[in-house]
Design a protein around this nucleic acid. Sequence first.
DNA 1: TCCATATATTGAACAATGTTCAGTTTTATA
DNA 2: TATAAAACTGAACATTGTTCAATATATGGA
Lengths: 196, 196
Amino acid sequence: MGRRSDHDRDELFELTVQAGQKILAKKGLEGVTARNVAGAIGYSPGTIYNLFDNLDGLLFEINSRTFDDLVDRLRSVPAQTDVVEHLIAFAVTYLEFVSSAPHSWEAIFFHNASHKAPASLLEKIEAPLKIVEEVLARLPKPLSQDELRLSARVLWSSVHGICLLVLSDKLGTISMKSVEPLIRALIENYIAGLTA
Amino acid sequence: MGRRSDHDRDELFELTVQAGQKILAKKGLEGVTARNVAGAIGYSPGTIYNLFDNLDGLLFEINSRTFDDLVDRLRSVPAQTDVVEHLIAFAVTYLEFVSSAPHSWEAIFFHNASHKAPASLLEKIEAPLKIVEEVLARLPKPLSQDELRLSARVLWSSVHGICLLVLSDKLGTISMKSVEPLIRALIENYIAGLTA
DNA sequence: TCCATATATTGAACAATGTTCAGTTTTATA
DNA sequence: TATAAAACTGAACATTGTTCAATATATGGA
């Protein structure tokens, strides 16, 4: 039984999110139930609803942190003078992250929320796209704001599609090594077409 | 109350699948519950389990038909002498289908089945890839079976990623018209890179 | 025609889910 | 120390998928 003196609200919030992440990593999305999470932190199910509006809220928070993690990884990709090389490094970083933490991404790709995601999460989903836009803006050919926005989205979506492929084929014949040269071809030539 | 004499087993199966499809189209994936489907065909919930091993079975059947539909659409794309044009026509066909029947594709992309999909469904998922492979095989450059397989998958996955983008942005600013030229650039240049 | 057998259908019941909230316990404050 | 505020509980509710004994219906042979 959880005691009020054990943790203040912020600590408890943090504890809950981490318990959720741990369960997600171990049991997958379907393991993240109110009773499981409550049990893991030593509180009763009702307490979850003291911290979050609903269970979706917990998953939104977890997903939000996964995006933070992705953004950190993208930001720490070494700067490349060549735009194409930079974008390829982004894609590979994304692919490796998805591949190494599949359940975190399962929660992002396949969680069917009954409630609306908060604006803060929607912003974080946008963050990687902003980073891609920044790099695309360095292309010699001048692109309008709209062109930049759309082409970043299309490029990232196609990389995203390939992440899904890798994710769905965890036990199959498609490895990172076999996909990387094709990602390279995809990006190299998409950019070539964009700037033609 | 359903009467045994109303339909034989095959008719009832058909009736159930169609009821499922109708509910899916109208209410989305979350509307497809055992009780809803049973109510729609005038039988009790238990009857559903006489026709399918479980509810996933019904959704597998519905998804299977969606893939059949896609394959029909791809097969009726007018033959193009140019491989790239042919692939672009495929992608546009796919995009338009997803865009016009979003809930059918929601069931394919976001249904988290508790049970394993039957081999027959897995084969149907492969069918569009086979069609893409066939066209890729017409490229002047000779590709090995493995190269063909992998590049078809990567190409289709990236188109798939863009379908998801369009699907997730049904009310947003991304239209078919704005995406089509970028799909074109994506495919044109991916193939250029592949055959270089 | 009528009974016996096989099949189809029902619907109550079970477990698990998210969620609520009246009641209890604990802490902070005056 | 008494009172108010906040946190926490856990039983309860509605809704899921799913099962299965009981019932209803159809079939085929005497």
